[in-house]
Structure formats: C-alpha cells, structure tokens
Simulated assay, not measured.
Amino acid sequence: MSTTKLFEPYKLGPITLPNRLVMAPLTRNRAMPPGMVPSPLAVEYYSQRASAGLLITEATQVSQQGQGYQDTPGIYSKEQVEGWRKVTDRVHERGGRIFLQLWHVGRVSHTSLQPGGGKPVAPSAIRAKGKTFVNGQFIDISEPRALELSEIPGIIDNFKRGAANALAAGFDGVEVHGANGYLLDQFAKDGTNKRTDAYGGSIENRARLMLDVSKAVAAEAGAARTGIRISPVTPSNDVSDSNPQPLFDHIVDGLEALKLVYIHVIEGATGGPRDNAPFDYASLRKRFTRAYIANNGYDFELANKQLAANAADLIAFGKPFISNPDLVERLKKGAPLNAWDKATFYGGGAKGYTDYPSLEQAEAAE
C-alpha cells in the first residue's frame, strides 16, 4: 500500500480533505429535459465517487443563455436547486465534499439551445471553429453576437446568483469556470476578444470580466469557498492568446488579491499534450499563496512527482474517475484500473455512467 503525499489530508479553506485527489469537472450530458435538472442517476454517480478528496461537478450553466450542449444541468431554477440538493445530501452522507462548477459557454453554443432561438453571446462576433452536442449529435457552433456593454452586469449577476443557489443546494463551495474557451476565457484571450471598451484591448481590460465574476462570486459564497479553473494555453473551442504568460500572471495576481481558496490550472492542452505551448506554470504557483490544483494528463507517478516537488497541492483526475468510482482505493492498493468507454461519455443512461464496478465488486465477480 502506498504512503505517498497523494493520500495525505489537506486543509482547503474551512474544509479538511482526506486526500489530495480531486475529481475534475466532467460533462456527461445526462440532465433531465426540459428543465435541465440533475437526474437520480447523477445522485448515484457522484456519491459513488465520494472518497475523492474533493468532487467538482460537471460544468453547470448559470442561465439558459449559458448553455452550450444538450442535457447539461443548470443552477438557475428552483427545480435545479432541488435536484442538486439530492446529490449533495447523498455525497455528504457518504462522507464526501463537493463544489459546483459555475459555467457560461459564451459563443460555444447553438441557436436551438438559446432563449428564443437567439444567437449565442461572445466578447466579439467571431464564430468558433468547432462542434457542439445537440440532439444526440455533434453539429457546428452557431454564429455569435457581441455582448453589449450594458449586458455585462447581468452576466456577472447570473454567476453571483448561481453561487447563492449552489450554497442553497448544499454545496461546500463553487468553482468559477474560466477555462477551455468558454465565456470568461473568450474575454481574456486576444484571439476572441476584439472589443474597444472597458472589457477589451489591454490585458487589464480583457481580464476584467474573469476578475469581476470571481469577485462577485467570492462575495456571495465566501472567498474560502470559491475556486476558479483556468487554462492558459489550451486551444479548446478555438481560443488563443498572442502572449498568455503576462495575461495569466496578471489574472492570478488578481485572484490572489481576492483570496480565492484555489486556482485549478489546466497545464497544456485540455485532454491533450501537456507541452503544446511554452508556459511557466511555476510563475502562477509562486503568485498564488493558497491551493494550486494541477490538471491534465496526470497519472499516479506524475501526481506523486509534482506533489513531492511542491509544484502543486492537489491533483485533479478526469477520465480515471469516470471509469473508477473508487479511484482513491485502487491507487492506494496499486490495483488495476477499469478502462473507460469513450462511446458513453456524452449522453445516455446508466451504461458507462454508474455501472463501472468498484474493486470490491470486481473481485467478488471473479
């Protein structure tokens, strides 16, 4: 049995995590239409994985406008709050800790998902080269429109309301989704933001919405219960920046000033190579004095290496948690991992969602 730092407790704000494994947010497209409410299967899915040091939910839209994919859950209606309450109650019954990830997709959407069939919104009217998931298939993203300056306070308020609703649903905290080419990331990066107002142009202006949202959410949920996910160099959803190092150094300086409890950093290309573009993640680590969650392509060996080098405090695992509800125990025992079934990642029912066997179940079946 391993005795590495990965299985040591960690104090995350007011919460003590029993280990340093974080279940990364993983979109699974199984919310119940028409209200985009978490299903009873979601209750079982998250509670099965409650042994993680921290669970972070799938990305959860703060408004209908914030939805970009079929059957993703929201946190803006009474029914959604009640649905999520069933999840948090079960996770807590099993001794787990869970944060909800607050999401607005921005331009990564389709008119069929938008209020009144309108255009998705973006910092600038630049269409993303990519696909979204609608009616069981991947289709082209719709052309967006640029947000009016007068609309931005409403976006910030939606995130703030989402944080309040998350706490009402029993979550231990919230994570602002500032990564992977969604709205806040679109504003931050100069490839997608061509604005000439207070939210465009300079690094300070482009970072403004991410920091404004983080400030509003922290004011609502408490900074000690607010984290954020960022992805400095991922090309996901057709985003890019001409000079990401000073941009994200500035962003992290702002997050440090807000005293957020963690930054959750996707190192490299989301779901792809860790070295797709040069970037000094150690610079972010030095600038931020609370928890650094490292993400992307981590296995047991790399997690141990980074923790031993003090390059991270917590390690987020994604796909391994999909197929291994008891990932913590399997890694502790050096047991083999279940292989994941990519065909069942997005949409469907229990298959590939709640039916992966635990180690105990697998051994009993032998």
Rank of each mutant, 00 (worst) to 15 (best):
L55F: 09
Q65I: 12
V91K: 15
G83H: 03
Q67K: 15
R94I: 15
Y69D: 09
V87C: 10
R90Y: 14
R90V: 12
E93D: 13
R49W: 01
V81F: 15
E44G: 01
T60E: 15
P73H: 08
S47G: 07
V62I: 07
D71T: 15
V62A: 07
R49V: 05
Y69N: 08
D89F: 07
I75F: 07
E79F: 02
E79R: 04
G66L: 06
Y45T: 12
G83C: 11
A59K: 00
R97I: 13
S51E: 14
Y46N: 03
S77G: 11
L54D: 14
D71E: 14
G83R: 04
G53V: 06
R85D: 14
R94P: 09
T57S: 13
Y45G: 12
S51K: 10
E44R: 13
Q64V: 05
G96F: 00
A50V: 11
V43G: 13
D89N: 15
Q80I: 08
W84A: 09
G96S: 01
W84F: 12
V62Y: 00
V62R: 06
T72P: 04
A50R: 06
S63T: 03
L54C: 11
G95D: 01
I56P: 10
E58R: 02
R90F: 05
H92G: 01
D71Q: 14
Q48S: 12
T60W: 13
R94M: 11
E58W: 15
Y45L: 02
Y46K: 07
L55M: 11
R49K: 00
T60M: 15
K86W: 04
Q70P: 03
W84R: 06
E58V: 02
Q64P: 14
I98H: 04
E93N: 08
